[in-house]
Amino acid sequence: MSEKLKISIKNLNVFYAEKQALFDINLNIMEREVTSLIGPSGCGKSTLLKCLNRMNDLIDICTMDGQVMIDGANINTPDQDPVLLRSKVGMVFQKPNPFPKSIYDNVAYGPRLHGMAQSKDELDSMVIKSLTRAGLYDEVKNRLFEAGTGLSGGQQQRLCIARALAVNPEIILMDEPCSALDPIATAKIEELIEELKRKYTIVIVTHSMQQAARVSDRTAYMHMGELIESGFTKNIFSNPQHQKTQDYITGRIG
């Protein structure tokens, strides 16, 4: 495990119009580790995740202050181009949302957008590489030009991961990636996360404590918009410092 700081969140406050959603969050995320955000629903973990690639910009009424530093640079400044940021910070959503296009086009969308491939061959190899990394290539190699929406739920989600990988991100954000999947598909995704962390920094929001315990190196527990506790996963689960964390992991709040 490297100890290099990748993302550093300092004094982050987020508001939806008048309502404050996040209160003074401070959190460090290390490079090439899996960090999971857990907590009861509505605690602000998804909001925090979306701050990391400024998806909150899409919501008019959402405002924030504080700093989110990636590789030492604040991303919350006006001159940070959110488009460039998002090609560096990939995202996988709660429900698999492949584009209504072929499997190939789904993966090729990002590289085409950013002009990453100079030739068709290069693009082909990017698509194949991303699909292989997402552990999907063997299953779909004979039907790359069929609709991505025709895949099973778990395959769709891996397609979405492949799509995110294709733009060569450094960080991958996952917003409850398995909540719409069955146990077998979930297991596959978890294996994949294990695999991906060698190359990428991963932040995952999950409502399943078992999942957090299985896949993550570090865990942050949130409650009512506040970060209660964060640290190595094994410590959080075996020896929580706060009463609220203990209540949650023992199932008293949920």
Partner: peptide, 9 residues
């Protein structure tokens, strides 16, 4: 190189 450009050609 393409990806060094801010905007595509």
């Amino acid at each position: 190189k393409f990806n060094t450009l801010h905007s595509q050609p």
